[in-house]
């Protein structure tokens, strides 16, 4: 928009600028983006969640009907009540949150040392290390999950190796278990943890560490009382980037998980496809969205607070 403005005749563009300052356009862009790709789909899902299932195209009733010049609006709350009636849904939410939480913790435990080592590596190596973190993402996500199926299955790499070495006689069952789901999530989302952590850690002032050492703190103590608190926002950003997509993950539990892996993504799939019940599936999605918005709002709140406090310094 701004580019367009500068190319116009000067008097016109100045007049326009006074009327519609380009800066506002720039600021409006992300809002427009959100409106189109978040709010509109959100409204559609919300609408479907209040309708009733029917066997037709589309497979749900319309909320607004005009019959004999009478406009009738019917809002069906039954889908939400249905979710409350059946404790499977609650269990699926909690189980998803638990799996995502554990996976996030594992990512943090693995990712922090990696990011720390990267940030402390010699300058010329850092780009290479960053590239190495990103390199696997050049292969399709699905192909990489399939590769894990080949590694973990009964007849796969690990079991065949262990059996060839005579360590085990029967294959260890790893595929189609929660273990495989954790492997998949941690593997797939680790870069999302490492990158924000690295971006944070690389900015740290080394003289602070020297000061801490001069004051007699051991390295471990320095880490706990200097590095870790300073990297808090990196930890939170990384954790959010892992946790939020992991809660709704469908592909990994579908391909690596077994019957005991209860995740909301799979339940949603079943509602949508097996039951053909788009309204209940939509209600399920709405509740999940709310559950995800809460941690996001907390994160946002925390970040803006931190920004304020850093301005105060």
């Amino acid at each position: 928009m701004e580019v367009l403005n500068t190319q116009q005749g000067s008097s016109f563009s100045e007049g326009l600028k006074r009327l519609l300052p380009g800066r506002k356009f720039l600021i409006a862009t992300p809002y427009l983006w959100l409106l189109l790709f978040f709010l509109v789909p959100f409204a559609i899902v919300l609408k479907i969640s209040f309708s009733e299932m029917i066997m037709a195209i589309p497979p749900y009733s319309s909320l607004v009907e005009l019959v004999d010049e009478t406009l009738s609006i019917s809002i069906n709350l039954g889908n939400y009540l249905f979710l409350a009636e059946d404790d499977m849904y609650i269990k699926a939410y909690f189980s998803s949150i638990q799996i995502a939480f554990n996976a996030t913790l594992l990512c943090l435990l693995l990712g922090y040392p990696m990011a720390y080592a990267m940030a402390r590596a010699p300058q010329h190596m850092q780009t290479t290390l960053l590239l190495l973190i990103l390199l696997p993402s050049w292969t399709s996500f699905l192909i990489r999950i399939y590769a894990w199926m080949g590694i973990l299955k009964n007849n796969g790499l690990i079991n065949n190796l262990l059996m060839a070495l005579g360590i085990i006689d029967d294959p260890i069952i790893m595929m189609n278990t929660n273990f495989a789901v954790y492997v998949g999530i941690v593997y797939a989302y680790l870069p999302f943890m490492v990158l924000p952590l690295y971006a944070n850690l690389v900015k740290h002032d080394h003289s602070l560490l020297e000061a801490s050492a001069d004051l007699g703190a051991r390295p471990w103590k320095t880490f706990l009382s200097v590095t870790l608190p300073l990297s808090k926002s990196g930890v939170i950003a990384g954790s959010m980037l892992v946790f939020i997509p992991a809660v709704g993950e469908f592909v990994i539990p579908e391909l690596l998980g077994g019957p005991d892996t209860l995740m909301i993504g799979k339940v949603l799939w079943q509602e949508f496809f097996n039951n053909r019940d788009w309204p209940v599936a939509s209600a399920l999605a709405m509740v999940m969205l709310l559950l995800l918005i809460i941690p996001m709002a907390l994160f946002h709140h925390y970040q803006s607070k931190e920004l304020e406090s850093s301005h105060d310094h």
Partner: peptide, 19 residues
């Protein structure tokens, strides 16, 4: 009938998820 479908599917969901 759709009602029976729903019963079948709920039962099956219980079987596949254990819930």
């Amino acid at each position: 009938p759709p009602k029976v479908d729903r019963i079948i599917n709920r039962s099956f969901t219980k079987v596949t998820t254990g819930q």
